[in-house]
C-alpha cells in the first residue's frame, strides 16, 4: 500500500511534468501538439545510440533532451507559423492536423529504421529503504530529478520575470503585448522547453521501465489526459492532475493489474470532464 502510494507520487510528478510540457504549448500558441510523444521517442533513440557508441550516460541524456528541445524549436519556427496566423477553432484544428502528420512521419521513420530499439537506463546499486519500502536506485534517482524539475518549473513560472511573462501571454495575449512582452519570442522559448520536458520525462521513465520505439502514441495520449483533466492551458492544473492520475495509476496496477490501468485513467479523465467540463483549473471553469 505505502509502496503503491510512493510509486504513485513519483509517477504522478512525472505525469505532471509531462502535462505541463503539453499544456504550456496549448496555452501559449493554441497548439495541441500530437507529435509530443514522438519527440520523446526520438530523444530516447538518441540517448540509446549515444550510449552504445560510448558516450557517458549523462552526456547521452543531455544530447537526447537537447534533440527533443530542438524538435520543439524547429516545429515552432517552421510548420506552426501558418497556425499562428489563424484564430480560435481554426488554429487548434490546424495544429492538430499538422502535428499528427509530424507524428506519423517521425513514428514511421523510427519504426522503419530502428524497429527493435529500446531505451532502458539501468542504474546499479542496492535498493534503499524509504518508509520501510525498498526502492530501486533508478526510481530514486528518477524521483529526485522529477522533484528538482518540478521545483524549478514552479520557481520559473512564479518568481522569474520571464516565467511571469509566459503566464501573462497565456492569460491575455494582448495585455501581455501592452506590457511589452513579445509573444513570438515567448512561444519559441516555451516550445523549446516543452520538447526538453518530454525528453526528460522519457529518460526518467527509462530508469524504471524500458521505453520501446512504439511508445510515442501512448505518451501523447497520457499527456493529453493529464492536460485535459488539469484544464487546457493551466500549469498548476497539469501538475495537480498528474499527481492524482499517478496515484490512481499506481493503485490500480497494484490492486487490479496493469492491463487495465489505461482504461481506469481514461475513465478518470472522462469523469472529470463530465463533472468539470473545463478541467480542474480550466480557464472558463
Amino acid at each position: 500500500m505505502t509502496a503503491a502510494i510512493l510509486d504513485g507520487i513519483v509517477l504522478g510528478l512525472q505525469f505532471g511534468i509531462l502535462g505541463v510540457g503539453l499544456t504550456i504549448m496549448y496555452g501559449l500558441g493554441g497548439v495541441l501538439n500530437l507529435a509530443y510523444g514522438s519527440m520523446a521517442v526520438v530523444a530516447a533513440v538518441v540517448v540509446s545510440f549515444s550510449m552504445r557508441s560510448g558516450l557517458p550516460a549523462g552526456l547521452a541524456v543531455l544530447l537526447g533532451i537537447l534533440t527533443a528541445a530542438g524538435i520543439g524549436l524547429a516545429l515552432n519556427l517552421t510548420i506552426l507559423k501558418p497556425v499562428y496566423r489563424r484564430q480560435g477553432e481554426a488554429r487548434v484544428l490546424l495544429s492538430l492536423i499538422l502535428t499528427i502528420g509530424v507524428a506519423f512521419i517521425i513514428d514511421g521513420f523510427l519504426v522503419w529504421r530502428f524497429p527493435i530499439e529500446v531505451l532502458s537506463l539501468s542504474i546499479g546499486g542496492n535498493p534503499v529503504l524509504i518508509l520501510g519500502v525498498p526502492m530501486r536506485t533508478g526510481s530514486l534517482l528518477a524521483s529526485a530529478i522529477t522533484l528538482l524539475t518540478g521545483g524549478a518549473l514552479i520557481f520559473f513560472f512564479r518568481a522569474t520575470v520571464t516565467g511571469r511573462a509566459v503566464r501573462s501571454v497565456i492569460q491575455d495575449e494582448v495585455g501581455a503585448q501592452l506590457c511589452g512582452v513579445n509573444p513570438a519570442t515567448t512561444r519559441t522559448l516555451i516550445f523549446t522547453l516543452s520538447g526538453a520536458l518530454v525528453g526528460l520525462v522519457v529518460v526518467m521513465q527509462s530508469m524504471t521501465s524500458p521505453v520501446p520505439i512504439s511508445a510515442g502514441f501512448e505518451i501523447t495520449i497520457l499527456a493529453l489526459i493529464v492536460t485535459v483533466v488539469g484544464g487546457l492551458g493551466s500549469i498548476r492544473g497539469a501538475m495537480l492532475a498528474g499527481l492524482i492520475l499517478g496515484v490512481v495509476h499506481a493503485m490500480s496496477s497494484f490492486y487490479i493489474g496493469s492491463y487495465i490501468t489505461t482504461i481506469i485513467l481514461l475513465a478518470a479523465a472522462a469523469f472529470t470532464i463530465l463533472l468539470r467540463p473545463s478541467g480542474l483549473f480550466g480557464k472558463h471553469a
Binding site: 511571469r164 501573462s168 492569460q171 491575455d172 495585455g175 501581455a176 501592452l178
Partner: peptide
C-alpha cells in the same frame, strides 16, 4: 477599454 488584465494573477 477592454483593460486586458491578467485575471488569475
Amino acid at each position: 477599454a477592454g483593460r486586458h488584465l491578467f485575471p488569475e494573477m
